[in-house]
Write a protein that binds this DNA or RNA. Structure first.
Length: 724
DNA sequence: ACGGCTCACACT
DNA sequence: TAGTGTGAG
């Protein structure tokens, strides 16, 4: 008889799945003749045989280790098969491994919440699945249990070395009077065994897994029996496991913190930590870390398995050791071009496949100086808004580099010309893209309200106008047009497809189903893929912080709140574009013009806007205003809010003639609303950096809550605005 | 002349 | 915030 679920049970079933020597498996799948042979993956073969980054289990028997050079590996294992990491653009290219990792994730994410922890590891929260199994088909009632589950290692079970180990495990899995938590764990064990077999069937990769009640223990367990095995941690043996575990084996304690525990507190095992009070640990390592240490000593880890299948950032980097160190701007430029191209390719792929865009570009480098005075000075990293397109990324990255170099050299004269320099050397370069957000549903975005007319920079010289007429997808959105978009109505299905053309970014197109978008708009939730739900979840909760940011930005924030209600719509400054998204020579000329007639009172000028405005006049400057229609549903509160924003936008200078463009049509003082969380970022992305910055200052990327158990230092993001 | 190349996250 | 540092694999 099934045991009733205890009330308010907070038992979770967590699995950590770890691919076995993943890169090697990927290469062995590609070249099956390598299977069974001692194999390792190396990158950059030229110097000492290249560096090993993955070693197969057959090779490990010979003492081959990661971090060996290829030549060393050959010494201890002459028959070793060394496979080189693919090289693209002069650098190691990990794409094949990333893609293989995604294959695995797509299998594992079908059951329960899934967090991609690295290229070859995931966490799964199988609580729901385990509970369901316990109710519907409890293990104790099973007549057949797969051998893969029976091969599990159950800590605390005296099975190792036993001839009837499988029977021991069967007994444990099917025990009728077991603790409820052990029963759930048994279900998790069966589920994970099945998942691992599924991974093997569908990807040909083996993996190992740990099944426990939290992430920390699951992670520990997955490493205990490799390869291609799984380990279970019943609650009853947690103490025994941790007591003698070397402190540095714990995740997060493998570095300086672990060393400090050893040397400063004499802690050698996790069990040793039990001797210290929480207060003592906090005194030594801070509130958060102290509490965290106190908890992990007891096997407590509240970390949630996040629903995240995709990485939060992309980066492309390369090191230039020793004599390879870069010594000229032009060589730096060359490598930044290579790195930017790879990054751009990955960003476009992310956009195509996942409808996500990154918003921050960061440049990292390391350097040293020949004139050693303070050569240990760190080369600063720099970031800026990210513009899509390899050429733009490269250009921005180079500018970031130059700025960083100036900082780095300080008063030192920075000779940036030619092949000479002031004695600096660059030993590594990397560009990375972060703040990646899912694009809000394609049809409900700022682009509906904008029409960006762009003339082609191709030989034809003909202006391209992808204007789209009147689709009236939802009330309040009577005029629909989208930048570089095409819409096709399928007469047979009645569906309307919106094609987003990102070709000017070097990306392939993708389309969105407008009916889906409409459903989202009207609040009807459809069953979507797990990833979609995740992304939607991520959008949630951002609203509060957005408000906060706007309030910080607005000078007259008082107007934001009335009757205790925060207004959630605002008004968009009109973006006027002169000409094209041509990736080549000239830059797009954009300007922002307040929608409403300029107000001269209470103006806070944004300089970049004013100066920009002077440049683009005359022919070709197409106001998008004529494509706007007023939103008659706007409330007076919206107007007030809008005014508060307008005040920040409006300039006091006398360019009223341009501003009158906003009077195009007969709207007069009409205003337009849009929902902040429906803005299509891609429009903003195309603006010049300073303008993007301006806009982002109103439309902050959503900040997410961090549920990690170390204490919520991020909590302040969710507190009321400091100004209030 | 090195472990290279990625990632995530806490802290300030 | 942007930037630094740590830790992981």
């Amino acid at each position: 008889m099934p045991v009733a679920k205890p009330e308010s049970s907070d038992v979770r079933i967590i699995a950590h799945v770890d691919m076995d020597c993943f890169y090697v498996q990927v290469e062995q799948r590609k070249q099956p003749q390598l299977r069974g042979l001692p194999t390792a993956v190396v990158q950059y073969n030229s110097w000492k045989g290249g560096g090993l980054i993955a070693v197969g289990y057959e090779a490990r028997k010979f003492g081959v280790k990661r971090s060996m050079r290829g030549d060393e590996a050959k010494k201890v294992c002459p028959q070793i098969q060394l496979v080189q990491v693919p090289v693209a653009r002069g650098k190691a290219d990990l794409k094949t491994y990333r893609d293989a990792g995604s294959e695995v994730v797509s299998v594992l994410s079908k059951k329960g919440r899934c967090e991609r922890a690295s290229i070859d590891e995931v966490y799964l929260d199988l609580t729901d699945a385990a509970e369901a199994m316990l109710i519907e088909t409890p293990p104790e009632s099973m007549e057949f249990i797969d051998v893969e589950a029976l091969k599990s290692h159950v800590l605390g079970l005296d099975q190792e070395g036993q001839s009837d180990s499988l029977e021991c495990v069967r007994m444990w899995l099917t025990k009728c009077d077991a603790d409820y938590r052990d029963k759930l764990l048994a279900c998790g064990t069966l589920i994970v065994a099945e998942l691992r077999m599924q991974v093997l069937r569908e990807t040909k990769f083996t993996c190992s897994a740990g099944i426990a009640h939290n992430k920390m223990l699951a992670k520990l367990a997955s490493a205990m029996n490799k390869p291609a095995q799984q380990t279970v941690v019943p609650l009853s043996c947690v103490k025994g496991l941790l007591d003698l575990l070397p402190i540095k084996k714990m995740k997060q304690l493998g570095g300086k913190l672990g060393s400090s525990l050893e040397s400063d507190l004499g802690v050698n095992t996790v069990g040793d930590l039990l001797k210290f009070s929480e207060q003592k640990l906090q005194e030594c390592y801070g509130i958060n870390t102290g509490t965290w240490l106190w908890n992990i000593a007891r096997g407590i880890s509240g970390e949630e398995v996040e629903c995240r299948l995709l990485p939060k950032s992309h980066g492309s980097g390369k090191s230039f050791p020793g004599p390879q160190a870069l010594r000229t701007i032009s060589s730096v430029q060359h490598w930044l071009t290579e790195l930017s191209e790879e990054l751009s390719e990955r960003l476009c792929s992310d956009l195509d496949k996942n409808r996500r865009m990154a918003h921050t570009l960061t440049l990292h480098a390391s350097a040293y100086r020949l004139s050693d005075s303070d050569s240990h000075k760190k080369f600063p990293s720099k970031s800026c808004p990210l513009r899509y397109g390899a050429a733009k990324i490269q250009e921005d990255a180079l500018n970031l580099f130059k700025a960083a170099l100036r900082d780095y050299l300080g008063s030192y004269r920075a000779n940036t010309q030619g092949d000479s320099n002031s004695g600096w050397r660059i030993t590594s370069l990397s560009v990375s893209a972060s703040k990646i957000m899912t694009i809000p549903s394609g049809t409900c975005s700022i682009t509906k309200y904008l029409h960006v007319q762009h003339s082609s920079c191709t030989s034809s010289g003909q202006p391209q106008d992808n204007d789209i007429q009147e689709t009236a997808l939802h009330p309040g959105c009577t005029n629909y047009s989208m930048m570089n978009s095409n819409e096709a109505h399928d007469e047979r299905t009645g569906e309307t497809k919106i094609e987003l053309d990102y070709s000017h970014l070097g990306c392939t197109n993708y389309s969105v189903d407008s009916s889906e978008a409409l459903d989202k708009f009207t609040g009807e939730e459809k069953e979507g893929k797990a990833t979609d739900r995740c992304n939607l979840d991520e959008e949630e909760g951002g609203r509060g912080s957005w408000k906060e940011e706007v309030m910080d930005t607005c000078s007259s924030s008082k107007e934001l709140e009335k009757d205790g209600v925060i207004i959630e719509t605002t008004q968009l400054p009109v973006v006027v574009a002169e000409s094209k998204f041509c990736s080549g020579s000239s830059k797009s000329e954009f300007q922002i013009i307040p929608i409403e007639e300029q107000k001269s009172k209470n103006t806070r000028i944004t300089s970049s806007l004013c100066t920009k405005r002077n440049k683009s006049k005359d022919k070709g400057t197409a106001s998008i205003l004529r494509f706007f229609k007023p939103d008659h549903s706007s409330t007076s509160r919206n107007h007030e809010f809008a005014e508060s924003i307008q005040d920040n936008l409006s300039s006091a200078d006398g360019h009223s003639s341009e501003l009158r463009l906003s009077d195009h049509g007969e709207q007069g003082g009409e205003r337009w609303n849009y929902k902040v969380d429906e803005i299509d970022i891609s429009v903003i992305e195309e603006l010049p950096p300073e303008m993007q910055k301006e806009i982002w200052s109103w439309l902050r990327p959503h900040k997410r809550s961090n549920t990690a158990n170390r204490g919520s230092t991020l909590a302040h993001y969710f507190l009321p605005s400091k100004s209030s």
